[in-house]
């Protein structure tokens, strides 16, 4: 994290902005930037000040840095005394201290005040998750999604929870829902294919391959999808259910994927040549 020390406050602001937009969970780095640069330059940030405060508050919660959390909440609630969004942070603070019952009380009060506010409901589900009660969390999240059907974050979380319970069919359904929301996102296609590939079986493999191909079509640089194409088609080719015609096709696709991957690596290799690496790899050969 040494490189973070040399940043000016405007660079730090830009860095935090990109992390915020990308949903990076770099809590330690955010906290570090806050301590080293931004805490003393807070008023220079203008309108962005409060988004930064929220971000830092979340990062401090993640690192269990309660004094910073309290400081951020204080500044935010001075500015917005009756905001439910700020009150949610009180609940999250309790949550970080593992006082789940108190946190639930605060959240229930928030929900009662404004039934259309979905953030406290999400926190309730996160509490169940934190307690390790994932079956109940799933139940609660399904109820939540009955009310807020267009909430993509909810669907994504539900899919992750189902995967943790190894209920792949339902997890895949959630991703299907997300693909409907955002058909141009290659990551969702890739994720769907990952789930189908994990399930295994001839039909699922074919489905996985189709989705990997779609992901690749949307973003030709998606190496994971490329490798997925290679794995699925080589698996299909070796499956006993495969007809001779399809087998030929799959083998062709395998070859193509493999050569593409090699191409990608050779272009990257020119950029970062590590001559030591090859020496080190050649040593491992002796052991094999």
């Amino acid at each position: 994290m040494n490189y973070l020390n040399q940043l000016s406050w405007s660079d730090a602001r830009d860095l935090l902005r990109t992390w915020r937009d990308n949903n990076d969970r770099k809590s330690e780095e955010v906290l570090h930037l806050w301590k080293s640069v931004l805490e003393y330059n807070l008023n220079k940030l203008g309108g962005e000040k409060f988004s930064v405060l929220e971000q830092v508050c979340l990062a401090a919660l993640d690192c269990y840095h309660i004094p910073t959390v309290d400081y951020c909440i204080k500044l935010l609630s001075n500015e917005f005394p009756s905001s439910l969004r700020v009150k949610k942070f009180y609940a999250m603070r309790l949550e970080a201290q593992e006082c789940y019952d108190d946190a639930l009380k605060v959240l229930d009060a928030l929900i009662k005040k404004d039934e259309t506010n979905n953030a406290p409901r999400k926190r309730k589900i996160a509490i169940l998750k934190a307690q390790g009660r994932s079956v109940e969390a799933i139940k609660e999240l399904v109820d939540y999604l009955k009310i807020f059907m267009a909430d993509t974050e909810g669907w994504q979380e539900l899919s992750d929870l189902y995967i943790a319970e190894q209920d792949f069919n339902k997890a895949a359904f959630c991703i299907e829902e997300l693909i409907l929301h955002n058909p141009h996102n290659h990551l969702l296609h890739q994720r769907y294919a990952d789930i189908r590939y994990t399930q295994g079986g001839y039909d699922n493999l074919e489905l996985a391959r189709a989705y990997y191909c779609q992901a690749l079509k949307l973003n030709p640089n998606n190496l994971r999808a490329l490798y997925g194409v290679y794995l699925t088609s080589s698996n299909i080719a070796s499956s006993p259910k495969c007809t001779a015609n399809k087998k030929k096709e799959s083998l062709k696709l395998t070859e193509w994927a493999l050569s593409e991957i090699k191409n990608k690596y050779s272009t990257v290799k020119d950029k970062y040549t590590d001559s030591n690496l090859e020496d080190r790899l050649s040593i491992t050969k002796f052991f094999i």
Partner: peptide
């Protein structure tokens, strides 16, 4: 899809509203 081109699943799957805080990182504090 151009904006998503350089994103990875690792950042996309992160959802701040569902963060949980009782992880082992806490012990460093």
């Amino acid at each position: 899809s151009a904006e998503l081109e350089n994103k990875t699943w690792e950042t996309y799957k992160n959802i701040p509203s569902f963060y949980t805080f009782n992880h082992r990182g806490k012990a460093f504090s």
